[in-house]
Design a protein around this nucleic acid. Structure first.
Lengths: 320, 320
DNA sequence: TTGTACGCGTTATCAA
DNA sequence: TTGATAACGCGTACAA
């Protein structure tokens, strides 16, 4: 029950075992060229003294710092938080130190952070994409980065099923619930995924089933949902699909104020607060936690040189 | 416009300057024993090549990694996010790499993280306290840690003005708005600050002005605010003070449903969403961003050996 | 005021 | 299968 004064070095362990530093190092790095017996002896001592090799020293030998950079757009993004929360434990479990940075949708900051990470000899990066983030920034990180929420060529990407989510909601409203007049409140198309992709999926569905589109596009904010509500409502929809949960929140507030709560609200993305305040909202879960899981897993396997570009789309599902 | 291939070492810089490694090292570490002229020359070259000394190598020499651990309770805590958002830029600016970890209110995880940070030779720690976090865990970090939201002896702490906030709200409701019957929805007293401290302040105010207390205590959640509403409402208050913004959110939902919106809601802690959904809520700002600022500043000055324990309480103020 | 030489903890190369 | 030894980039006695 001795205090594991982590000042032990590989040298001390070597002395304790009666072998040389090199052998201990070999055991640590799983070098097969070491006799079973000696290995066991060394491992035992290592366990006993809770020895961990100095990360700094390893880093200096070019081994990487066991550091993963996680670049989120905003620390208070609920969706990204879910993803991050699910990847942190995975990284910890594998002995990596995740360091979280906030891009605030600025490509310049991303560039800054990436070079910080490079100079720190970080092993890998998980980055949440946003409109304006150029692929070229990540060119140095092709083999050790995972991009979330956008498809980049020659990169491992984890995407949400934007189109599927819209279609899922619309199918539910149109086919199961017999809504004929379905409005849409979204985000301007400069935003490629949340904006353009989802809006286009709405339009496509309308065309396919010969529905008359009734949409308004604005910002990604509560307020935008609230303010755009009246325009879509002017054409008397019986249901409205919202591109995000914050928009759904704004719309719900508007409907509540105007006593229009018979109108069905559908949201892409579900959040605790939306669910609590407006439980009638029909939401589709994009799978943020799964995205985090995949991101961590993929990055780790890339780092173990099981190098293979992947392009994963997380399946979405309706909240029942 | 050359690519700053960060492979430069102190040795290269030395050659470039026509001096020796040691001199460069001395310049970097602000050793006064170096001639003005040589210093300028070296600095110029360093600037020109954007040279940064290898953190790993420095760490190996016992210099610390320029790493700050930030242990939040939950990544999706709005209040902590505000604080973190305001300290990150400060740490970056001083060349520190903040690494954010999530305790999930578990002392065990904190212990784990702290030893991770120690083994990583982190320079300092900012930790958001919670009920159950024992001071002893931080004993090793007395000189290089800042505790937020709880007073620990022999530690630098940044606290919110729990008592002041309650009194500010009550004074506003009682004296400016003439409310006589003011209820309170709070958190159970096991939680020392948000729970006990704020509740006690409410009771004290009531006693001081001879008001009859009307309180209910529960959890820190929307739902708790919603569920406890009826008990406090039973005694017909004209205003209700909520210990947190989430509770206020829950209460507001209840009032909205029961069409009791003439009742004034007051909240300790303001959040964007509360403000958006229920703008009539009277909120007091605890100053999370300021707390982040102070925390970063204090920690940095501690690390520069301007060692001096401080105990800062952030002043709160009413949202107008 | 500056340079030389050594050590930090680790891995890699070579020789045994 | 192992051990001695040279690096890695940096800071710092010590010497000049």
């Amino acid at each position: 029950m001795s205090i594991s004064s982590n000042n032990l070095t590989i040298k001390d362990i070597a002395k304790l075992c009666g072998v040389s530093k090199s052998t201990v190092s070999r055991v640590i790095n799983h070098d097969p060229m070491v006799k079973e017996a000696t290995r066991n002896k060394v491992i035992a001592i290592i366990e006993q003294y809770q020895f961990t090799p100095s990360k700094s020293a390893r880093a200096m030998r070019g081994y990487g710092n066991k550091v993963i950079g996680i670049i989120v757009t905003r620390l208070d993004s609920l969706s990204e938080n879910q993803a991050v929360q699910s990847m942190l434990p995975i990284f910890y479990r594998h002995g990596y130190d995740p360091i979280i940075m906030e891009s605030q949708f600025s490509a310049i900051k991303v560039k800054e952070y990436l070079s910080m990470l490079k100079s720190k000899q970080a092993d890998g990066v998980v980055i949440f994409a946003f409109t304006g983030l150029e692929q070229s920034l990540l060119s140095t990180w092709q083999n050790n980065s995972v991009v979330i929420a956008r498809k980049f060529q020659d990169h491992t990407c984890i995407c949400y099923d934007d189109i599927g989510a819209v279609r899922l909601l619309l199918a539910h409203l149109y086919q199961s619930q017999q809504h004929q007049n379905i409005g849409y409140i979204g985000i301007e198309q400069q935003d490629q995924t949340t904006g353009a992709l989802r809006y286009q999926a709405y339009l496509d569905f309308c065309q396919q089933y010969q529905l008359i589109p009734n949409a308004a596009l604005g910002q990604l904010s509560y307020r935008s949902g609230y303010e755009l509500a009246q325009f879509v409502l002017a054409k008397n929809p019986s249901a409205i699909v919202c591109a995000t949960d914050s928009i759904a929140l704004g719309l719900n507030k508007y409907l509540n104020e105007k006593q229009l709560e018979h109108i069905t609200v559908a949201s892409i993305g579900n959040s605790e607060i939306l669910n609590f305040l407006f439980p009638k909202t029909c939401a589709v879960e994009l799978g943020f936690d799964q995205a985090g899981n995949y991101a961590a897993q993929e990055l780790l396997s890339m780092l173990q040189n099981q190098f293979e570009l992947k392009n994963i789309t997380i399946p979405c599902h309706l909240i029942s």
